[in-house]
């Protein structure tokens, strides 16, 4: 009896209700942010927090875009783009080797790389700063690419290795009979077949790196070399009390991610599930 009551009444009601509550909790701050960007500085002080803006005024956005915002954006796109491309390529190749090639140190090396996931980024800051300075890369956006790729590889290799282990070995053998060497097997069979895994890795890392602050803060110093998370930081100094303007920066910064997630969400979920379901 009890279980059928659960099944008939509690579950159909409770699940949507809890879902709605969760939706409200997560979208409230977001709504507040977007709404406030349309208020003037004056208005943001005088009106209630949840009051609608008096007019749909883009003045804050215009002010932000008139500044160096586009330079930050360009740097972010460049650094994240290059890093994610490298991460996907390198981790896919490494994963192929770990998942498919028999060599003596396979398991040991894989363990070592996966162990890299537990190294806290912060203890690497000073050595990386010193290395970057010695290499003459300090205060260049490209200084970020190395640390970004290095810190993202362990988890990416881990995800993709699991993914490639699921690909049937007969496909590899069929490709060998069709005349493929290791490179052709990788690029023509394993790489395309890992699509969902690759997009998971790409999107996951893109989000992490898009928001990355600490390396960017330590390894760059000028407006012309900094990425978006530092834009917020820099603007906060500049507009210290202009909350709507700061929120406009935040909104513009998160916009690309929101768009990317909206389009890629299905693939991310699929990629994250694939490892567990196909086994």
């Amino acid at each position: 009896m009890a279980s059928s009551t659960t099944a008939r009444i509690v579950r159909p009601v409770a699940v949507p209700v809890l879902g709605l509550i969760w939706l409200a909790v997560t979208t409230m701050p977001f709504l507040f942010m977007v709404m406030t960007t349309f208020k003037t500085q004056q208005e943001s002080y005088s009106s209630s927090v949840w009051a609608l803006p008096e007019a749909l005024d883009f003045v804050n956005y215009r002010a932000v875009l008139a500044g160096p915002f586009l330079t930050y954006l360009k740097n972010s796109v460049m650094v994240v783009g290059i890093s994610v491309t490298l991460i996907v390529l390198i981790s896919a190749m490494a994963a192929f080797a770990f998942a498919r090639m028999r060599f003596r140190l396979n398991d040991a090396l894989f363990g070592l790389i996966v162990a890299g996931m537990i190294v806290p980024i912060h203890i690497t800051l000073v050595p990386i700063y010193l290395m970057t300075r010695d290499m003459g890369l300090y205060d260049s956006p490209f200084a970020l690419v190395g640390p970004y790729v290095a810190t993202s590889l362990p988890i990416s290799i881990f995800i993709l290795t699991e993914f490639m282990r699921q690909i049937p070995k007969e496909l590899e053998e069929a490709a060998r009979l069709d005349g493929c060497g290791p490179f052709a097997i990788f690029f023509k069979v394993f790489f395309p077949l890992s699509g969902p895994g690759l997009s998971t890795v790409a999107i996951y890392n893109a989000i992490m790196l898009w928001n990355e602050f600490i390396f960017a803060y330590v390894l760059t110093s000028s407006t012309s070399t900094r990425t978006l998370p530092l834009a917020i930081w820099d603007y906060q100094g500049q507009y210290s009390s202009n909350i709507p303007a700061i929120l406009a920066v935040v909104t513009l910064t998160s916009l690309p991610l929101i768009v990317a997630y909206a389009f890629g969400q299905e693939k991310i979920v699929k990629g994250m599930m694939a490892g567990s379901l196909k086994g």
């Binding site: 007969e170 496909l171 069929a174 009979l177 493929c180 052709a184 395309p192 077949l193 699509g195």
Partner: peptide
């Protein structure tokens, strides 16, 4: 030699035509 596998081992990301043409292209 050419081999037919028990689970067929067709390349899932290629059309039937490309599956058959793949070895010849290689």
């Amino acid at each position: 030699v050419a081999m037919v596998f028990q689970n067929y081992a067709l390349y899932p990301h290629m059309s039937v035509y490309d599956n058959m043409a793949f070895g010849l292209r290689q």
